[in-house]
Design a protein around this nucleic acid. Structure first.
Length: 460
RNA sequence: GUGAAUGUAGCUCAGUUGGUUAGAGUAUUGGUUUGUGGUACCAAAGGUCGCGGGUUCGAAUCCCGUCUUUCACCCCA
C-alpha cells in the first residue's frame, strides 16, 4: 500500500534555500536583541489545556490545535456524556494543545519562576506557533513568531525602547516602505465616550479595528446601530484619515479629547514615548499616529502598535502593545508589561517580494572533487581533508562514475570549483582546477591551488 | 466556522456539444561525447485524469459526496 506524500493542511516543508534565508533573518534579529540586553527563552510546543483556554476569546479558542490524551479515555466519556455532544466531550478526551502564541507561555513561565527571575524581565522568544485557521495568503497554520517583552516595569521608556528596537531590526534587514503605526487605547476610550464601561469600550475597539478594511461609512453605520453617540462618530470621522503629520495630529487630539481623563493620559503618554524614542534615535517618518488603530486582542491597556508595509497584500508583519493585567490569570497581580511580536514568515514574504535575499544562495559547497581513478583515491582523500582543514567547503563525489554525471552534479548544485585528480595529474604531480562559471581550467601544485581558491572565494 | 473557485505526466498547462490508444512545453533517463557541466540534436520513459459513488452503450468532460489547494469573510502574525 502506497501512502500518498501529502502534507497536512496548512503545513509546509522548508527547502535549504528557505532555511538559509530564514536563518539570516533570525541571526540578524538576534544580533540586535543582544545589543538591547534581551535574553532568549524557549518553551515547549505543548501547553496544558488549562493554560491555553480562556485567553484568546471564543473565536481564538476554536483555533487551538488540541492533542488527545495518551491513555484510554473512552470509558470515562461513555459514562458521562453522549457521544454526539462534541463540545462537552472535548475536555474529557484532550488535556493539552499546541501553543497558540508566545505571550501566554511567557506569562505561565513567569508565574512559575517569579522568584528566580530578575525584573524588569527582558526576553525574546523565536518559536513556531500553531493556529487551526483556514490557510490563506500570508496566513499559515504553523508559523514562526518572534516575541519581545519587557515584564515588570510601567515606565514609558519601555515603549520607546521597543519602538527603536523594531526600527533597528527592520533597517538592518533592509526592509523598505515600512510604517510603525502607533495608538493608545485611551484615545479610543475617549472617542468612544465609554469611559465607564469596559464592555462597551471593547465593542468599540473591535468595530473600529476593521475600519481600514470595511471603510469609514460601514464602520460608522455599525457603531451607530450599536448606540454610540453622534459626538463619538464625529470624532472618529475627523481622525479616520489624518493629514498633516504626527505633531499636528497630537495637537488636534489634545484639542478635542484632551479634556477627558483617558484622553489626557493617553496623549501625555504618547507624547512622552515619542520624545524618548526620538532621543534613542528613532527618526520621524518611520512611524505614524493612527487614532483608529485598535488591535483585536482584548488585553491591551496602553500604547498599541502595528507594523505595516506600503502596498503589501499581506496584513501586518507585527504588532503589540502594553498590557497590565495579564498575570492575573495565573494568580499574579499587577504584572505589567509591554510586548511585541514579529511574524517571521510574513517578514520573510515581504523581504522576498522586495528582493532582499539576492545575496543568499542555497549552495554550501565551494569545491567538488571528481572521483575518477582508483589509483588516485588516497591522493584525492588526502586533498579533501587538507582543503577542509584549510577552511574550504569541499566534498568528493562518492561514486566513481562517468565525469559527465559528476560535472552535472556540480553544475546543478552551483558549486563554483571542481578539482580533478586523475592519471594525468598523478603523473605531473599537480591538481587540475576548473572554474565552473568561466569554464577555465588550470594545473596547480598545493600552494598555488590554495592561493587560486582563496582569491576567487574571497576567504580570510 | 461561513461563502466561492480549483484539481489532467515530477512541474506549468492544452484536451472540441460526452465518442478510438488523453497531448504539449519543461524537467528526468539514455545517446551524439569512456578526461569535463551549461547549448544543440536524436530517442526513451513517465498519467488509478484528486478520491468515492451515480447518469450513460460510452465520462477527463454531466450530477452528488469527499479531500486538497487558492480566494473572500471571521480573526490574526
Amino acid at each position: 500500500m502506497i501512502i500518498l506524500p501529502h502534507l497536512v493542511k496548512g503545513m509546509r516543508d522548508r527547502t535549504a534555500l528557505e532555511i538559509y534565508r530564514r536563518n539570516y533573518i533570525i541571526s540578524t534579529i538576534q544580533s540586535i536583541y543582544a545589543c538591547y540586553g534581551f535574553e532568549p527563552l524557549e518553551t515547549p510546543a505543548l501547553e496544558s489545556r488549562a493554560t491555553l483556554t480562556g485567553k484568546y476569546g471564543a473565536e481564538g479558542e476554536q483555533l487551538i490545535f488540541s492533542v488527545l490524551k495518551s491513555g484510554d479515555f473512552t470509558k470515562e466519556v461513555e459514562q458521562k456524556i453522549p457521544l454526539t455532544d462534541y463540545k462537552r466531550i472535548k475536555p474529557y478526551i484532550t488535556d493539552k494543545g499546541l501553543r497558540y502564541d508566545l505571550t501566554v507561555p511567557l506569562v505561565r513561565y513567569i508565574a512559575a519562576n517569579q522568584q528566580l527571575l530578575t525584573f524588569p524581565f527582558r526576553r525574546y522568544q523565536i518559536q513556531p506557533v500553531w493556529r487551526a485557521d483556514r490557510p490563506q495568503k500570508g496566513r499559515y497554520r504553523e508559523f514562526l513568531q518572534c516575541d519581545t517583552d519587557i515584564i515588570g516595569s510601567s515606565s514609558l521608556l519601555c515603549e520607546a525602547e521597543i519602538l527603536k528596537l523594531i526600527y533597528d531590526i527592520l533597517v538592518k534587514l533592509g526592509l523598505q516602505h515600512f510604517c510603525i503605526k502607533i495608538n493608545h487605547r485611551g484615545i479610543l476610550t475617549a472617542i468612544s465616550g465609554a469611559e465607564a464601561s469596559s464592555e462597551r469600550e471593547k465593542i468599540f475597539c473591535t468595530t473600529v479595528d476593521k475600519l481600514e478594511k470595511i471603510g469609514l461609512e460601514k464602520t460608522i453605520a455599525t457603531l451607530s446601530s450599536k448606540g454610540f453617540s453622534e459626538q463619538s462618530l464625529q470624532l472618529l470621522t475627523s481622525f479616520s484619515d489624518p493629514k498633516g503629520g504626527n505633531m499636528p495630529l497630537l495637537a488636534q487630539l489634545d484639542h478635542t479629547i484632551g479634556c477627558t481623563a483617558s484622553g489626557a493620559k493617553a496623549i501625555g503618554e504618547l507624547t512622552e514615548v515619542i520624545t524618548q524614542a526620538g532621543r534613542l534615535g528613532l527618526p520621524d517618518g518611520c512611524w505614524a499616529i493612527q487614532p483608529t488603530l485598535a488591535r483585536g486582542l482584548a488585553y491591551y491597556t496602553g500604547m498599541v502598535i502595528e507594523i505595516t508595509i506600503k502596498d503589501s497584500q499581506i496584513g501586518s508583519i507585527g504588532g503589540g502593545g502594553r498590557y497590565d493585567q495579564l498575570g492575573s490569570l495565573f494568580g499574579i497581580e499587577n504584572l505589567c508589561g509591554i510586548g511585541f511580536s514579529f511574524g517571521i514568515d510574513r517578514l520573510y514574504d515581504s523581504m522576498e517580494s522586495q528582493g532582499l535575499f539576492n545575496g543568499i544562495s542555497a549552495s554550501v559547497t565551494d569545491i567538488l572533487l571528481i572521483n575518477m581513478d582508483a589509483k588516485a583515491e588516497s591522493q584525492l582523500l588526502a586533498l579533501l581533508s587538507r582543503l577542509r582543514t584549510y577552511g574550504f567547503k569541499a566534498e568528493v563525489y562518492p561514486d566513481r562514475t562517468k565525469l559527465k554525471r559528476q560535472f552535472v552534479y556540480a553544475d546543478k548544485k552551483k558549486i563554483p570549483f571542481v578539482v580533478i585528480v586523475g592519471e594525468e595529474e598523478l603523473s605531473t604531480n599537480c591538481y587540475s582546477l576548473k572554474n565552473m562559471q568561466t569554464g577555465l581550467q588550470n594545473s596547480y601544485n598545493w600552494p598555488e591551488l590554495c592561493q587560486a581558491l582563496e582569491t576567487s572565494l574571497n576567504i580570510k
